[in-house]
Amino acid sequence: MTDREENEVAALCSDRRYEAAYALLVRAQTPPLFRLAVRMGLDSDDAQDVLQDAFINIWRALPHFRGDAKFSTWTYRIVANEALAALRKQQKRRLWTVRASDAPEAVATSASNDVYFQADEALALLHRAQAQLPEKQRLVFQLRYFDEMPYSEIAAITGTSEGGLKANYHHAVQKIRAMVQTIKPNPADDLLNAENE
């Protein structure tokens, strides 16, 4: 979401034109938020459900938005919470059908089998590895690595301190590197090395 769009939404909200502000948020934020939900390991249908629930909350809360954070950060936070809740529900359901040790693998394959996923082997491997991270660590990794968000913004989304986030991201990278090397020593490691440099 650009600064101009942020200002526009803020101006519409201050004029109490919430419907217009909401429409602008939908137009600007649906693609990145849908992408985030899919990347978190949800399939297309579940990601759409998550966005619908999140946008109901956004619409209801829009008149009460205090302006503590950017609108984009706020919407990311709501969608991230909804996505985490959906993943937890999925995991509970999955526990009835597969053994607990199989669950991370099941999450990992859901993104790769999705019709929207198309990438080279290195990126596919990176997705598979990051899908095995704990949910919150996965969220931090994605926001930092793929969305290239500053730590301050990720802190506002996840509700954790910047110091904690840096440590969390570092651990996530270490884990992914180890996982990638275990699966197959290949170019996915180079992607992470390039990120650190």
Partner: peptide, 24 residues
């Protein structure tokens, strides 16, 4: 934003945006 390999289907995205716009 880095390339993440996820391609969003335009038709799906448009349908979703329409659905979300109707929420109010």
């Amino acid at each position: 934003m880095k390339h993440d390999g996820i391609h969003l289907n335009e038709a799906t995205l448009e349908r979703l945006q329409n659905r979300l716009s109707d929420l109010p």
